[in-house]
């Protein structure tokens, strides 16, 4: 996985026919980042966004699957605190048949942070045999934190698999009590729950990167 440095004003990228690219975008400072990526025939794109801390970020990502058997695995994780304000828009365009896309987004908001996720999957009329999946799940750690998740499907083909799911929830007391009854402290139990929650969005990310996020998770647990 290569690190992709996004500059203010964004980027236009492409994954050429038959090739595969794997990019990691770490965002620790704010800005507006419009990004458009075209994925050609038989090409694979893996892309993970990790947004951290007390930042104001506007991500607007468009992925165009323009050649048969193109595929995209997209991940996003935001760990926010303070007055962070993150907007994340994704447009996944299936323009031709037989492409697949899988998106997993996980958001944790502490402090007075807020996140807004908008995710559109658009399947063109002749893009049959499309397999498109999207999940966006959010955890709120405080009363003041906010999260919105708006998934949207626009499907013009009839032989497709398209799924989406979005949730906004809080730490689960049942799980916390279960862990505490085994001697795991409340603080540690919260950290475990957050780590487990975030893990699904980190499956394509190298282990040293996901291990490096533990400090952020610990900090966000305490910052409540």
């Amino acid at each position: 996985m290569e690190t992709l440095e996004l500059k203010e004003g964004g980027a236009r990228l492409s994954v050429e026919r038959g090739s595969s690219r794997s990019w990691l975008v770490m965002q620790r400072s704010g800005g507006d980042f419009p990004v458009e990526i075209t994925v050609e025939e038989d090409a694979s794109l893996e892309l993970a966004f990790i947004v951290l801390g007390d930042v104001r970020v506007r991500n607007s990502l468009t992925v165009n699957l323009v050649g048969r058997d193109a595929n995209c695995r997209l991940r996003g994780l935001w760990l926010l605190g303070g007055n962070a304000d993150v907007k994340f828009e994704v447009r996944m365009n299936h323009e031709v048949p037989q492409c697949n896309s899988e998106q997993i987004f996980k958001g944790i908001c502490g402090g007075s942070a807020r996140s807004d996720f908008f995710g559109l999957i658009k399947v063109a009329p002749d893009a049959q045999k499309t397999d498109a999946r999207q999940q966006c799940h959010n955890l709120l750690l405080t009363e003041a934190a906010r999260a919105n998740a708006k998934p949207q499907l626009e499907i013009y083909a009839d032989d497709v698999i398209c799924t989406h799911g979005a949730t906004v929830g809080r730490l689960r007391d049942e799980e916390l009590f279960y862990m505490r009854s085994r001697g795991i402290s409340l603080e540690e139990a919260k950290k475990i729950q957050l780590t487990v929650f975030a893990a699904e969005a980190l499956d394509i990310v190298p282990e040293d990167v996901s291990a490096g996020l533990q400090g952020w998770i610990d900090a966000i647990t305490l910052s409540e």
Binding site: Y178, M179, S181, G183, Q193, V196, A199, E200
Partner: peptide
């Protein structure tokens, strides 16, 4: 607290054990 009681040597076997997806039994 529940954890202090556990450290003192009290254990509750749950009637309805809680599922924790994503956390392995070993890590737990």
């Amino acid at each position: 607290s529940p954890e202090e009681r556990s450290w003192k040597g009290i254990f509750l076997g749950f009637q309805y054990p809680v599922e924790i997806p994503g956390l392995t039994n070993a890590n737990f």
